[in-house]
């Protein structure tokens, strides 16, 4: 039950983030939308692990209770670290671009590049 709700919410969050990435004209907003996508996919993995139960998988001697599945939670920690690294790196690139062109608007930056070439 809980697992299903989390699942649908996070898929909806992914769609919202994707639409935000496609439509926004500002680099920072694009990066924030990417953050939304990454957060919702990380949430989805907790949803996957809580399909049977939401009791935390900590061993206390009693194995009759249904536990939450520990494997997706364990692997998604790596995913969280990766998304953190990607957000940091993209902000670094945004800073470099801002220092060179003094704008965050992608239209201005790209027309700049195309004029440079001619």
């Amino acid at each position: 039950m809980t697992g299903n709700i989390i699942f649908y919410i996070s898929v909806a969050g992914m769609l919202v983030g994707t639409i935000g990435m496609t439509l926004s004209r500002n680099i920072i907003k694009k990066i924030l939308s990417l953050g939304i996508v990454e957060t919702s996919i990380n949430t989805l993995y907790t949803g996957i692990s809580s399909r049977k139960s939401i009791i935390p998988p900590i061993v206390n001697g009693d194995f009759s209770i249904a536990y939450a599945d520990p494997v997706p939670q364990a692997v998604i920690i790596t995913g969280i670290v990766i998304s953190f690294a990607l957000l940091c790196l993209s902000l670094v690139f945004a800073i470099i671009i801002y220092n060179k062109y003094h704008t965050m608007d992608i239209g201005t930056i790209e027309s700049n590049f195309e004029r440079e070439k001619e």
């Binding site: 990435m21 680099i27 694009k30 990066i31 990417l34 990607l86 790196l89 993209s90 690139f93 945004a94 470099i96 671009i97 060179k100 930056i109 590049f113």
Partner: peptide, 10 residues
């Protein structure tokens, strides 16, 4: 180069 990287990254 930073622009190409950012595009690739997103």
């Amino acid at each position: 180069q930073a622009w190409a990287s950012l595009k690739y990254l997103l």
